[in-house]
């Protein structure tokens, strides 16, 4: 199967519940097969055997009937830049892209389903949908899991649940997360306080881009910390409620800005658009900040004629591997900044 790098993933659609703040929802299930060591202790023959076995399983009629056609890609057959693009589209982890050994990814055509093979666990099954659709993502992941379980013997213990390479995932093996755009909480200096409170309700927060607590582009990812002792529905419900609360908080901060700093706000959005539409050199950090500003403009209906789908597309297409792929060559950081500015102008011009 060849990789269609030009297509946009389902999560990038930019529409759905709470789409003015919540960019995407993800549900990930960790699964391992009985009778095999976990990937960190597997030899090459076992890795190859597992990929073959999983490749067979996805061809079963039950899988097709339940979730449609799934296709397996051997990472060995992809160029490094292609693997990196899968990371930039959030379809695989950096560990899978860069790791040694035999690895594979299974994708559905709309990229709403991706299954990593031989990552930290034998299978990391994930469903990624736009906006706040955690329940839908869980139902889809549950269906994929059921269909695969008919073909594969998963390691399961009556007390500990699904057995995983790291005890932080044992039980449900479920990690649910939402990606939120919280510029007003950052601008009004509430983000630190609000996000710190989340850890008390079992929710972890990190910036999507950037290191540690810094979130370039004001995009945050929140996820459940605990995987054992609660049902999947409880975990999904809890994270949905937390996400809605966060979105409400952000909306309040936005309205406050609109009331108290209307001209500063509109000026900021307008300037960001002006720079993005005309700049000739754009660093990744500057681009992410300006994209956050125009995203806010779109979400608050200050800026017309642009939709969130385009901004999601921009966010992905200005990443290093995508730029190199589009340019067809490796580039120095400076060349990348020039290509990034050109790509932004091109996409904004439609």
């Amino acid at each position: 199967m060849s990789l269609n790098l030009d297509r946009n993933s389902k999560w990038m659609e930019g529409s759905g519940p709470q789409a003015d703040i919540v960019i995407s929802s993800r549900v990930r299930l960790a699964r391992n097969l009985q009778g095999l060591p976990f990937p960190n202790l597997m030899n090459q023959a076992q890795e190859v055997q597992l990929i073959r076995q999983v490749g067979q399983a996805i061809l079963a009629p039950g899988v097709f009937q339940s979730v449609g056609e799934l296709k397996l890609l051997n990472l060995r057959e992809l160029a490094p830049v292609e693997r990196q693009i899968l990371v930039e589209k959030h379809l695989i982890s950096p560990d899978l892209a860069e790791g040694k050994g035999e690895k594979a990814v299974i994708l559905r055509d709309d990229e709403a389903i991706s299954i990593m093979v031989n990552e930290e666990d034998h299978l990391r099954l994930q469903c990624l949908l736009p906006a706040l659709m955690l329940h839908e993502a869980w139902r889809l992941a549950d269906a994929v899991d059921d269909a695969l379980e008919n073909e594969l013997d998963f390691a399961f213990d009556q007390e500990k649940g699904y057995l995983t390479a790291c005890p932080t995932n044992v039980g449900t093996g479920l990690r649910a997360s939402t990606m939120l755009h919280l510029p007003a909480l950052v601008l009004t200096k509430q983000a630190g306080q609000v996000l710190a409170a989340l850890t008390k309700v079992g929710v972890a927060v990190r910036g999507l881009y950037g290191e540690g607590t810094e979130a370039q582009g004001n995009i945050f990812q929140v996820s459940n910390q605990i995987t054992l002792g609660r049902s999947e529905e409880e975990i999904i419900n809890n994270l949905s409620v937390v996400t809605v609360r966060l979105a409400d908080q952000e909306r309040e901060a936005r309205e406050l800005l609109r009331k108290q700093n209307r001209w500063q706000l509109e000026d900021r959005v307008g300037r960001a658009y002006g720079i993005l539409a005309n700049a000739r050199i754009l660093s990744s950090q500057e681009a992410l900040q300006l994209l956050s500003d125009i995203r806010l403009g779109v979400e608050m209906k200050i800026l017309r004629g642009i939709d969130q789908r385009l901004i999601n597309q921009l966010m992905v297409r200005i990443q290093p591997a995508y730029l190199q792929f589009a340019a067809g060559k490796e580039m120095t950081p400076f060349e990348r900044d020039v290509h990034r500015a050109a790509k932004v102008r091109e996409l904004l011009a439609g």
Partner: peptide
């Protein structure tokens, strides 16, 4: 999980705050 349970179980309880799975049960392996 079975053979190292004596030392692993206290860690799991501390990480997860629980030691009993209450989620999904697979049809065959369950």
């Amino acid at each position: 999980y079975h053979h190292l349970a004596a030392r692993l179980d206290p860690l799991i309880r501390r990480l997860q705050g629980s030691s009993q799975h209450r989620g999904k049960v697979p049809r065959r392996a369950g």
